[in-house]
Amino acid sequence: MSKLLVKPKDGHGLVTHITPQAADWEYVGFDLHKLRPADTVGAQTGDREICLVFVSGQGSVSIGGNDLGLLGERLSPFDGVPAAVYIPGGSNWQVTARSDVELAVCSAPDTVHNLPPRIIAPDNLSKETRGSGTNTRYVTNILPEDQPAQSLLVVEVITPGGHTSSYPPHKHDQDNLPHESRLEETYYHRLNPPQGFGFQRVYTDDRSLDEAMAVEDGDVTLVPRGYHPCAACHGYDLYYLNVMAGPRRTWKFHNAAEHEWLLDT
């Protein structure tokens, strides 16, 4: 199995735990908790900021003992938009599930601790459609670069069955602004119906990295560098939650030159 493919643990609780150390990079962390009603999870952020994303389900959130109320509206990631919470470094947080909850904890460095926590309400999320034809996909910007954070960028995408995504292939692995930014990235994949599968390739121009992976429901793929297109198989819609972070908080990508002609069609 590819070292870039992370399979979830069975059962409930912390089913996926990706640290910068485990991923052999510097910035992005990603945890996925599956909670039953009344289950509670929480942590101290330390020198990392986090974005909690209710992938599905509903729960109450508190930060530093302050109750933010009940968040989350959708039953699955394919049904509506998420609720999310931004939490800076140096904070304590806690989530108590009201229903079955799938909670993503997206993290990146924050040594400044100068931003307040805030709810990212569904009504405040921007949505867009990218691509055309069988390259159409639907994007929800959860924590884009025009919203306050130190390092984190968070977005979710739904790719209909039979379509491609993150395509034409693009990369963001060079600290070369304004042309390209260096960003590590994780993809948390879900399939609808869940028995489906899709594909993702991660590769560099010189092919020193070239991994092609079949992704199943609940898998996470790591993108330390290189191009990283996805494909959803016929009959199975593909959801993914992207977490990005790097030395500069901006998303500037470079398209693979040999496939850039696709943008003209």
Rank of each mutant, 00 (worst) to 15 (best):
P116W: 02
T265I: 12
L238Y: 10
A43L: 07
L209M: 08
D110A: 06
V81Q: 06
F197G: 12
S2H: 00
V101K: 02
F199N: 03
Q200F: 01
D219T: 07
T250D: 13
V215I: 13
G46K: 06
V154N: 02
G11D: 09
P20R: 07
P116K: 15
G218M: 12
S76T: 15
A84C: 10
P193S: 14
V223Y: 01
Q200E: 08
S2C: 05
T159S: 06
V154H: 01
D237W: 00
K171T: 07
G72T: 14
P160C: 07
L68E: 01
R48M: 13
I120S: 01
C106K: 02
K3I: 10
T129Y: 00
H254V: 09
I50W: 08
R36C: 11
P229F: 00
A257T: 09
P169N: 04
Q174S: 10
G57W: 12
D146S: 03
D206A: 00
E102H: 14
R130P: 02
E73Q: 13
D67I: 07
N141Q: 10
Q174K: 15
G161D: 08
R137I: 07
Y227V: 03
L32A: 05
G198C: 03
L103F: 14
D100E: 15
V101P: 12
G46Q: 04
Q21L: 09
G65Q: 03
G64A: 04
T221E: 00
A43N: 14
W25I: 12
L68Q: 06
R130D: 04
V155M: 06
L75F: 00
R98K: 15
A97D: 09
L125M: 15
R207T: 08
L143C: 01
H113C: 09
D146Y: 01
P82K: 05
T45V: 12
G59V: 10
D146M: 00
L70Q: 11
L68N: 05
S99W: 04
Q200D: 02
E73R: 04
Y27Q: 10
A257L: 07
E102K: 13
P148N: 01
A104C: 12
G131R: 08
S208Y: 02
E102T: 15
P88S: 10
K34N: 08
Y240E: 12
G161L: 06
M1K: 03
A97Y: 02
V202E: 00
P193W: 14
G72K: 11
T265Q: 12
A108H: 10
I18L: 15
M213P: 01
D100Y: 07
L191Q: 09
H228F: 03
S99F: 04
I119Y: 02
C230M: 04
N192P: 09
A212H: 02
R207V: 04
N141M: 11
G65C: 04
G218E: 13
G42Y: 05
T136E: 12
A22N: 03
F30A: 09
F54W: 05
N124I: 06
T159A: 06
E73M: 06
D10E: 13
G89K: 03
S107Y: 09
V112M: 05
V215G: 01
L263Q: 14
E128C: 07
A83K: 01
P169R: 02
H113T: 10
R248L: 12
